[in-house]
Every structure is written in structure tokens, then in C-alpha cells.
Design a protein around this nucleic acid. Structure first.
Lengths: 107, 107
DNA sequence: ATAATAGTCAACCAATAAGTTCACAAATGG
DNA sequence: CCATTTGTGAACTTATTGGTTGACTATTAT
């Protein structure tokens, strides 16, 4: 699997995006990360594993606690990929595109 | 499934990103979209369906031909989400973060 | 009318994902 | 030493994904 596959797949889950959002506020032990969710700790642990396999999060063991922190560099690649299509998702340029297309329809 | 789930999931596949890249060059009939891939037309058709369900591609039937075009507005939401973490994936700020952390380690 | 083109639909398969539970390990606290 | 906290690992279930093939529909070309 390519890095981009892994990055986008990791971000395609609500729980995992919430974990990223949580970790953006600062490092946190897994138990604290898991607290807001209804699912089992094991399930959250798996989500963190997916994020860490994708390189979006790193986990450091100190004592019996695993501290999770955001490690967002793969996001940069994702954004880079998306930026290649900026002309499609940019509002103003999209309006320009529609204008040009309307012009063409007259021909 | 949320829009973001769908958008990120749609982009988490190499074939589908290649399709998006192809369509960025302009509208194309499904057969042309499928041509570069080894898999069956049915499989490509399914990928296009995933992209179209996610709103990233629209399909218009003219005659017996289905024309596919990029429809990238959902990408905007994805980029918006990622931008919330820009400070993590931005190169220079990341370097700053490491600097600050090194400072802390002295304490 | 017939044949070729463009594509869908349904059925199926193998692999992966997301969750569960239970048993266990390893560190900390009394 | 013993209990508690903080997780991991294995086994299992259910649903989804990505692919196949074969039959079919609809449009165009001869």
C-alpha cells in the first residue's frame, strides 16, 4: 500500500479524525484518548495503531503508559496531492471554469 | 457515513486517484478512463461509482457513452479539515516545534 | 436486420476493517 | 505481596472492499 493510500484511509474514519483532533491539543495517554468514545479501549487502541502505521501519530511508552502524539507530516503529502486539483476545488476558479464552459456552449 | 469519511475513503485507492488525475485533464468516456488499467471495465466502473457517490466525479450519459468529469468540491472540505493541522505538517513550524521540545528536555 | 460498442447488473470470492470479549503482561501503589 | 491501572494479543463476528465472470440492455454503425 502506498503512503497516500494509508494516509487517506487512516483519515477516512470519524473516530480516527477525532483522535487526531484530540492530539492536536497535545500529547495524551491512550486511556485519555479513549475516554470520550463509547467503544472499548481495545478498539481505540486499534485505531491509534492504524494512525501510527500511517505515520500520523507516534506512541511512546513511559512507564505503563503509552503517550500518543500527533505526527502530521504525512498530511503534508496528502495536501500536496490535493493541491494539484486546487483549480477544481477553489471557489473562484471554479466559477471561472463554469464561465468558460458557458462560453463554449455557445459555439 | 459522513462526507469526509466518503471523500477520504474514495481517495485512499491508487486506481481512484489515478482516475481523478486523468479526469483533471478533461472529461472522458468511461472506456477511455478504463483503458490504462489492467482490470476489467466493470471494476473501473465500480471505482467511478465510488468517486461519484463521494461527489468527486459526475457521470453524464450521452448516447451510449458515459462521460466522466471531475467534480472536486468535496476536496475542498478535505483540505479544510487538513488545514486545521497545518501547524503540524508545515515544515518550518515543525522545525520550531522540535526546537521548543529540545528546550523543554533541558528542564 | 445484424453486429459491434459501451456499459450495467447480479452473483460470487478473497481479503480487510471495525468491533467485541477474554486472557494476559507489565508497571505502580498500598 | 497483592491489587490496580494501563494497556496488548488472540480469537471471533459481521460488514465492506476490490476484484472476477457472465448475462443482459441500449445505442450506433453497416
Amino acid at each position: 500500500m502506498t503512503d497516500l493510500n494509508q494516509t487517506f484511509a487512516a483519515l477516512s474514519d470519524t473516530t480516527r479524525r477525532a483522535i487526531v483532533a484530540r492530539l492536536a491539543e497535545g500529547e495524551a495517554p491512550l486511556a485519555k484518548v479513549a475516554a470520550p468514545f463509547q467503544m472499548s479501549l481495545t478498539a481505540v487502541s486499534k485505531h491509534v495503531r492504524v494512525l501510527s502505521d500511517a505515520g500520523l501519530v507516534s506512541v511512546t511508552k513511559r512507564g505503563r503508559t503509552r503517550y500518543c502524539r500527533i505526527e502530521a507530516s504525512p498530511m503534508r503529502e496528502a495536501v500536496n496531492w490535493l493541491n494539484d486539483y486546487q483549480r477544481f476545488w477553489d471557489h473562484q476558479l471554479e466559477a471561472l471554469g463554469e464561465f468558460l464552459q458557458d462560453e463554449n456552449e455557445d459555439v
